[in-house]
Design a protein around this nucleic acid. Structure first.
Lengths: 201, 201
DNA sequence: AATTTGTACGAACGATCGTACAGTTAGTTT
DNA sequence: AAACTAACTGTACGATCGTTCGTACAAATT
């Protein structure tokens, strides 16, 4: 039964909502979640301002929904492919390379969505910051646990996760700011040598 | 002749300007250079909005002046102390530790000013982004040249600078976002082991 | 066929944004 | 003492912000 009875109105609403959130995530990766404005979003999508607003009820809810939508894209692009291979060094390398590729191919036009919004909200207060921080913790945890799944790797997993993630974010930052794709090469070099060193410990 | 004849009006103006820019840099490190508003700045400093505006003539000029003012603080806090010791490993370590301390002690309330504004402007266009990118290049160059001043360190200086700076920025990001001071410990560990490994190469 | 439900619209609100300009005040020059 | 100058103020502007509300219309339910 593929064709479940579906309300055409709800269907249309969800589609509009998806379009709004996709565009919102794109804008936010460049101009930040505060740079997002409901009016601009409406103009670019050629819908009414109140139409956009009605989907979320407040700007804060729009920002939260945008973060969730971006997280879904991130998971699809980076996390899920890595979880498709068994734990071990291959999974770890796929996870890291997946991140670099996700950033490098500009899944979001401003580079990694979460790099942008973490830096934007890190020193603020409120629900958006809390949500962003929570996703950051989730990413840290995933990397750490993936490291722990690698045998013959008797190092501090937290420390190694810190260093590896640092390389990824640095590559994103440098490549976007200076339009310099070699940053990804440097990150790959750093990841490989750090991993090699950790395995022979 | 210490008491050079000075125009008291210009003197007062410069002092006001300095107060504006100090506060502007503090705000921008938390809320970003776009989060800065002339009206808010005026309210907090208890001066008139037009008084603030008159000092710069446009918001973009205020942003540029804020970046320059923050750069001066950064140089005073991080760069100058390191240049006071002769080139070599001691200077490199002082430079890196100076940065970590500058971030850790919250010279700017939102952590490193340049981390915040780089992430904010990296994907934009215009004079502010160009200025921020230029200071970023200057910092990269300084770290690389300081590395090159260390004897018995036959590694790719660009690569090493990439990795070391990555650790610093990661510490800043993690500590601010998660209110976690142990990020600095991790960065110091990473810096030391990376440096030790580079020196025995 | 009548009624309810959900999406989207248009107009308007108070607040705040950056900016403009004429006027006030205080220190400098003549 | 008069003329001038620089910092600063007060008021006002058009634009845009997030938000509210009443309405229009299509789809689903009765």
């Amino acid at each position: 039964m593929v064709g479940v009875k579906v309300d055409g109105r709800l269907e249309r609403g969800e589609q509009t909502r998806r379009q709004i959130l996709r565009r919102a995530a794109e804008i936010a990766s460049v101009e930040g979640l505060e740079g997002l404005s409901i009016g601009r979003l409406a103009t670019e999508l050629e819908v009414s301002k109140s139409g956009v607003f009605a989907h979320f009820g407040s700007k804060e809810e729009l920002q939260l929904a945008t973060v969730r939508a971006a997280a879904k894209i991130f998971v699809d692009e980076v996390v899920t492919p890595a979880l498709d291979v068994p734990p071990g060094r291959a999974r770890l390398e796929l996870l890291l390379e997946g991140w670099l590729s996700y950033s490098e191919r500009r899944t979001f036009p401003g580079g990694c969505f979460f790099y942008a919004v973490q830096a934007e909200f890190d020193a603020r207060h409120g629900r958006v910051r809390d949500a962003v921080a929570e996703y950051g913790r989730g990413w840290n945890t995933l990397v750490r646990e993936t490291i722990e799944g690698v045998p013959d790797l008797a190092v501090d997993a937290d420390q190694l996760a810190f260093e590896l993630i640092a390389f990824l974010e640095m590559a994103n930052a440098q490549s976007v700011l200076h339009d310099d794709p070699t940053a990804y090469t440097r990150a790959r070099t750093a990841v490989r040598s750090t991993l090699d060193r950790a395995v022979q410990a």
